[in-house]
Nucleic acid binder design. Structure first.
Lengths: 198, 198
DNA sequence: ATTTTAAGTTAATATTTGCTAACTGTAAAG
DNA sequence: CTTTACAGTTAGCAAATATTAACTTAAAAT
């Protein structure tokens, strides 16, 4: 069993173990037996918590999506400056990414190929929705005159999503341990350097 | 059956179909049945050409590796200027990449996680060897004074490999058709702009 | 004290997968 | 003309996988 998840409920352990398998071993190893082994229960016990293995994946994706979406709404509700709002959103997104161990960007990659329409549609819908929310904030920044005029909000929103994807790939290819993004604040400020008016 | 491979031998068709499945559908779908379907034969017929499915993967990787290595040797034998030698190597590499439909970078990604030592070792050995060959050329360029002094040959060689990897990811994520690298010459010259003395 | 429920077990199911064996047709070699 | 080799077929096996069923047990609810 994993030592990092002693006091979690079994359901949480399953989600965590599943995420880790997806990231570190690939979808091919995402089997009931492997997940059970990692959690410390039998394969059959998993079905006391989920009706199918697909449901685990849906849960992993949905948590990521809802947490990211919520963090945008929360950041907006905080009534910060546009710049701080954007930064807050990015900070939160990176936090969710770390907590889910990078599983969702990997799933994006896997399902963009596998032709599994069910998962692809969920992920695609999320990316579209999230892009819209982010680009609205960037658009507002442009109106306020703090974001460069020649920035395309949609493009820049996608750049952020793409950047996260790239970071996860790098993390995996370099076989690293620990956080995916070592220094979130510096990544965020680098990104901002390119879009803010000076 | 695929229309693009009418006149090839069955063995070639299997390799091509296998590569395409790896790239477009993932390793999970790399099964005898799926490959057979794509080629237009039964799963059992595949074993008339390969002793195992693993052997197909080994063949895909080895072809990529040997063609890349050979192209370096060929480029060196052409007695071109250092700059032209490097460019020639990159051109050839991109050609091999296109012909193998980007399967090997994807396999690198998959096996860097799956823990399959057999494949990982082959790929790792290749990358190390290839990096060495490339960096020797870059080193020569430095001695000739045409490459910037502050360039680390090893780092720059890896940059090229990483760039190829990134291009394949982008190709897949954007669900594109056709060539992975649309304009090889401009990619090569962009890369060179950063390393050559001016 | 008893019943109910939650969460685990083992055992069994159907399906899929990798691979082998036995057979068939065709085309080249002798 | 016969033989042999090749490249395909179908049938089938053993292992793995997703899932279900039947049972156990301990704790919570009544």
């Amino acid at each position: 069993m994993l030592d990092t998840m002693e006091d979690l409920s079994t359901k949480e352990k399953i989600i965590l173990a599943g995420s880790e398998i997806i990231v570190k071993e690939g979808l091919r190893k995402f089997t009931a037996k492997n997940i059970g082994n990692k959690v410390g229960i039998t394969d059959a016990a998993i079905y006391k918590h989920f009706t199918s293995l697909d449901e685990i994946i849906v849960e992993i994706i949905n948590r990521y999506i809802s947490r990211c979406s919520q963090s945008v709404d929360r950041a907006l509700a905080m009534n910060l400056s546009t710049e701080e709002t954007l930064k807050q959103v990015m900070r939160e997104h990176i936090k969710v990414l770390e907590e889910t161990k990078g599983a969702v960007p990997i799933l994006c990659f896997e399902f963009s190929r596998s032709g599994n329409k069910k998962f692809f549609d969920i992920l695609h819908g999320f990316v579209e929705n999230y892009k819209e929310k982010l680009s609205n904030i960037i658009e507002k920044g442009k109106k306020e005159g703090i974001v460069r005029e020649d920035i395309d909000p949609q493009e820049t929103a996608m750049l952020f999503v793409g950047l996260i994807q790239a970071k996860v790939f790098a993390y995996i290819m370099e076989n690293r341990e620990g956080p995916i993004i070592k220094n979130p604040e510096s990544l965020i400020s680098e990104l901002f350097y390119g879009i803010m008016k000076r």
